[in-house]
């Protein structure tokens, strides 16, 4: 028996079609937004990675000695090659041992200054090398806000004199 579409059936059909259309449109919008948001996040991650690489290159190739360290307790966390060569050591751990036991209480001076002010501006430090010759350095450091970590730049004073 063929079906005759009366008003009620027509309204049911049309209303269903309209709601389904709205649902599909909504799903389309949701999927497009999802794709856009994921792309934006991916771009941001790429930018952070590039910036990290730039910073790493700057850190590694710097002519000044650089390191990141915790000043309480004294632990060297990251170093560049220049600082290791300046202090004539091969590893971060050797540098840590050397800096945590500087003569004349210099290590405690660094720690106290970072605790009190958060900044050290060109502090002169000296330490005897294995050959017995004293080497002098200028050390500047800045504490990371709210942590016991600090970033430090070291310049060999003899080199500074040569430049000057």
């Amino acid at each position: 028996m063929p079906l005759v579409l009366n008003d009620t059936l027509s309204i049911i059909l049309i209303a269903t079609a309209v709601i389904v259309l709205f649902a599909f449109a909504y799903v389309f919008v949701i999927l497009s937004s999802s794709r856009r948001i994921v792309q934006e996040q991916q771009q941001r991650i790429d930018e952070i990675r590039k910036s990290e690489e730039r910073y790493k290159a700057l850190f590694e190739n710097s002519l000044a000695g650089m390191m990141k360290f915790s000043f309480t307790p004294f632990i060297v966390l990251e170093t560049n090659q220049t600082i290791l060569e300046m202090f004539n050591v091969g590893t971060d751990y050797e540098l840590q041992r050397l800096l945590s036991d500087l003569p004349n209480g210099q290590t405690r001076t660094i720690e106290a200054a970072l605790h009190a002010k958060g900044v050290i501006d060109a502090l002169e430090i000296e330490f005897p090398t294995v050959t017995g010759i004293k080497r002098r350095f200028l050390l500047s450091a800045k504490r990371e806000e709210g942590t016991n970590l600090a970033h430090c730049v070291v310049i060999l004073m003899t080199a500074e004199r040569l430049i000057g």
């Binding site: 009366n6 009620t8 059936l9 049911i12 209303a15 269903t16 709601i19 389904v20 709205f22 649902a23 599909f24 909504y26 799903v27």
Partner: peptide, 20 residues
Amino acid sequence: LLYGAGTVIITGYSNTILAM
């Protein structure tokens, strides 16, 4: 969402449709 959108009206009128 799609099931609801596609069937909410038909389900609502199911007894009416059955009567036809």
